[in-house]
Computed example of a mutant assay.
Amino acid sequence: MELLSTIEEFYIMSKESTRKVIFFFTADWCGDCQFIKPVMPEIIENHSEIDFVEVDRDKFIDLCGDLSIYGIPSFVAFENGEEAGRFVSKNRKTKEEIQQFIATL
């Protein structure tokens, strides 16, 4: 999974990518984020048609505010320059819930 390094990179990926992109908003201190991180490689492997990008919530707090992401872990998907879906809440996510979200895209 790629790690977002600049805000400009977010806008390029979300607006110009020809593939689906899912941004995974997380933080090192977040217990629920650490709970789901071990299953992310399997989810990514099962969805090679999607680019996954990890976004450090603390580094990109303004972006989180702009996207109304007030709970982590959260996922926001983009396709063809438009938001295609979101799985955003303060609740712990399970592998099954993430897979269900991806299936709706």
Rank of each mutant, 00 (worst) to 15 (best):
C33E: 05
S68Y: 12
I102N: 03
E82W: 03
F10P: 01
L105D: 09
I22S: 01
G65T: 09
D62M: 12
Q99S: 09
F52L: 12
P38W: 01
E8L: 08
V39A: 04
N91H: 14
I7W: 03
G31W: 12
I61M: 11
E83S: 07
K93E: 08
Q100E: 15
V76T: 02
Q99V: 13
L4P: 00
T104E: 11
F52S: 10
L63N: 10
F23L: 12
F35C: 09
E54W: 02
I12S: 11
E45L: 08
I50D: 06
E83G: 01
F75Q: 03
I12A: 10
I69K: 04
K20F: 05
N80S: 08
F60D: 09
C30H: 02
E54H: 05
K90Y: 13
R57K: 10
I98G: 03
Q100C: 13
D56S: 06
E54S: 14
S89L: 06
R57V: 09
I72K: 02
F35H: 14
E82M: 12
M40W: 05
N46K: 14
E42S: 07
E49Y: 02
E16Y: 14
C33L: 11
V76C: 03
E16G: 07
F87N: 07
A103C: 09
E2V: 12
K59T: 14
L63W: 08
S48R: 13
K37V: 06
K15W: 08
F10N: 02
Q34L: 15
I7A: 11
F35P: 04
E42N: 07
S14L: 10
I69D: 00
R19G: 01
D62N: 12
I72Q: 01
P38L: 05
S68N: 13
F87Q: 06
K59R: 13
V39S: 03
F75V: 08
T18I: 07
E9P: 03
I61V: 13
F78T: 02
Q34M: 15
K20H: 06
S17M: 07
F60C: 13
G81W: 05
G31H: 10
I102M: 08
N46E: 15
F24E: 10
